[in-house]
Design a protein around this nucleic acid. Structure first.
Lengths: 182, 182
DNA sequence: AGAGTTAGTAGACGCTTGTTTACTTGTCAA
DNA sequence: TTGACAAGTAAACAAGCGTCTACTAACTCT
């Protein structure tokens, strides 16, 4: 056994991220995370404190949604629509996105989630918008983003097995344009 | 103590519905439900079998979303938009709707939720639609409906303290019209 | 080479959970 | 009035949870 704190804690963090994404916060135990990471349970608590704190750190692992939002504001609706269309039609989704969808309902987790979504989605979208009350419109966009996660979680990936994939995406783009425009 | 099985089991069901709606499936214990209903814990299992079965029955208590969907198909987008606008702006929401928002992530609960949403929302909206692939468009509407629940859960009721309530509702209506139209 | 620091381990602690069993008590028919 | 059935109760069960403490073993530095 090679002793490497950094590598071990990184393995734990990745295991936590993947398991939380796959099964949801409540369904994943500290022992499952430790086993997946090939580490001892006590180390998980030692390195990350509590389960909720570990969840918060795993959530901060980084998501590509941020790079989707950044960029030319004119194409924002189109980029968000594309991402959601992919999410509704294919099986692959990045871990952090699924963590958000499948997070639990305990107050502590809610608060962590709230902070995360507000900072990485709502604020960033709002920053791209012109006109009055940008946050209000960004929240409507968040409604669609989070809703896609719920639908995917309930109905399974590939729920919209696109008869016409481009048509679904076009519809989503039009919806985003309406909720984002001044 | 008056002994009345029907009344007791109804009190249990109502207590379960209200608690599940308020705190989410995982946060609510059988003992909490029994206490709220003024009944013994063993009775909850006796009358409803398991916690998940009780959840399923409480979910079937009935929701006004069904009557919102029913009615003139031409005004469907407007009625859905109004309901969501109210949900984003006020504190009051009916129990069953919140149960859906705050349900847990265990496979068993997911399955119950999937059945419920599909039967009471997606199928009913799809039945109102003309043109090809009505279920596909109904799913997009469900995305907005479920997304509203997520936003409300994360950001709290009254998140969109409408500077212009009617403007938000108009925006939602336009979005629904796009996702529902053939 | 030896001491000190620190990664890693084993195991238990205390608590909570859903569920079940054995029992008591009220109610109603005969 | 009595006996049987059903409603209600108390207590325990068995399992699982997150977390912590006491210990072992590997690495580093002088």
């Amino acid at each position: 056994m090679t002793r490497d704190r950094e590598a071990t804690s990184r393995r734990i963090l990745e295991a936590a991220r993947d398991l939380f994404a796959a099964d949801g916060y409540d369904q994943v135990t500290m022992r499952m995370i430790a086993a997946e990471a090939g580490a001892n349970v006590a180390l998980v608590n030692r390195y990350f404190g509590t389960k909720a704190a570990l969840f918060a750190e795993a959530l901060a692992t980084g998501s590509t949604i941020e790079s989707v939002i950044a960029g030319d504001p004119a194409g924002l609706a189109g980029r968000l629509a594309h991402r959601l269309a992919v999410r509704l039609q294919s099986g692959a989704t990045e871990p952090v996105t699924r963590m958000v969808d499948r997070a639990g309902t305990s107050p502590e987790i809610q608060a962590i989630l709230h902070t995360h979504v507000e900072a990485t989605v709502v604020k960033r979208i709002a920053a791209q918008l012109d006109g009055p009350h940008p946050e209000q419109r960004a929240l409507l966009a968040a409604t669609m983003i989070l809703g896609t996660g719920s639908v995917r979680r309930l109905f399974g990936p590939g729920v919209i097995e696109a008869v016409d994939a481009e048509e679904v995406e076009a519809r989503l783009r039009a919806m985003f344009e309406i909720c984002l425009r001044p």
